[in-house]
Design a protein around this nucleic acid. Structure first.
Lengths: 215, 215
DNA sequence: TAGATTGTTAATCGATTAACAATC
DNA sequence: TAGATTGTTAATCGATTAACAATC
């Protein structure tokens, strides 16, 4: 049914390649070898070639890689050429910030709506979009063919809301709630656990200090 | 000088353990075996025991682990018992949202200031803290013993600002800017590249569809 | 003591790096 | 053609899982 499965380790590196190649392209650089890219990105040339080869040969022996071509191919792999309808569930600080801050449209996402159960927010305009009550969520998702839900609601409600959204046909979650969602494997979940990330930072700061300072 | 280095793979799992143990503790559960925790968290019991043993034995043979003790020990490992002075650099949507949304104080972080170069924001109150101009950043960091800078500024200025902050004595960055910072290895950096995360999500959604739908 | 479960060693698996033949 | 650099196989490294002896 499918080709060989690509590991998430590789997928996780693609956006960074994409970013560097975009910059190289903007600088007008036309070709690059895995060794040159290795020097810039501080990863091994071997890893770069292995990673790209998961998707077939993008390069030319003796020449290297065409920057623009490679950039576009990685964009396609990441699905940036496809449109995805997206909603934000939870119009608190974080939900509003993401609506305003993320350049959704530039990456193929169509921002279709934002929902909250706080009546004080209903009707408030967030990026030309009025906050809708949660009561309208289910019908909206079903009728507007929504693919992705950004969850910026408290963890107490996130699991139940996610389960309902799965029934309504959501394909993936960008989950900022501090819980693990309980959804079928066919549903994709990308977690952004901000406080976890901050804890990793303090661990590393403290450990560095313990190893090097007063000990 | 130090003990054996703990891999970042292990560190990355600690916050999740910490979260689950906190919940178990709140439910009044006193002891848990690696097997029970394995069932709840969907990771192998073997991995749980290996992970904990990186830091010495927290359990008791034949009994399991004391939930509260384990919870506290992991908290200490993550450095949550230590205070860290923190500032936010960039008071746009994301910077403001993080100031309001993150419960910094609850995890040992002292929110000391927020900076922006937009004069329209200067003096605006964000969580009882007035936005200060970037001109005051350097002196502020030096005089207030700031450990962590949250970077929510555009990528065009992030690298230079980070380099300056390193000179001013910053120990770690929580970096939301979409660039790789160029800082000495002794400085800890935790990147949160939101758009990268979203790209991984679309990759996985698209790939699932290609494998299972029309193909 | 017998049973349970950790701590830890050994085996396996997967990911990264090195090497080099293929080829532009 | 000679030189460069990929694509790809082989070697290494590290992380995960399995197994079991130690011990509570």
């Amino acid at each position: 049914m499918e080709g060989k499965e690509i590991s998430q380790a590789v997928i996780g590196r693609l956006p960074r390649y994409f970013r560097y190649l975009g910059e190289l392209k903007d600088e007008g650089i036309e070709r690059i070898s895995s060794q040159e890219l290795s020097d810039i990105m501080k990863v091994t040339a071997s890893q770069i070639r292995q990673d790209f080869n998961n998707f077939g040969g993008f390069g030319q022996q003796g020449y290297g890689y065409k920057v623009e071509y490679l950039y576009e191919e990685i964009g396609k792999i990441l699905g940036l050429d496809k449109k995805h309808n997206l909603i934000i569930v939870g119009a608190g600080n974080l939900g509003q910030a993401l609506a305003n801050y993320m350049n959704f449209e530039r990456r193929g996402f169509l921002f279709k709506g934002i929902f909250d159960n706080n009546p004080a927010l209903h009707g408030k305009k967030i990026r030309d979009m009025e906050v809708k009550p949660m009561e309208e969520l289910q019908e909206f998702v079903r009728e507007n063919d929504i693919d992705i839900a950004v969850l910026t609601i408290p963890k107490t409600s996130a699991v139940a809301v996610a389960e309902q959204l799965v029934k309504d046909g959501i394909k993936g979650f960008w989950n900022f709630a501090h819980v693990d969602l309980n959804v079928p494997k066919r549903i994709q979940v990308e977690n952004v656990h901000l406080s976890d990330s901050l804890m990793k930072l303090t661990y590393n700061i403290n450990r560095y200090e313990e190893e090097n300072n007063v000990h």
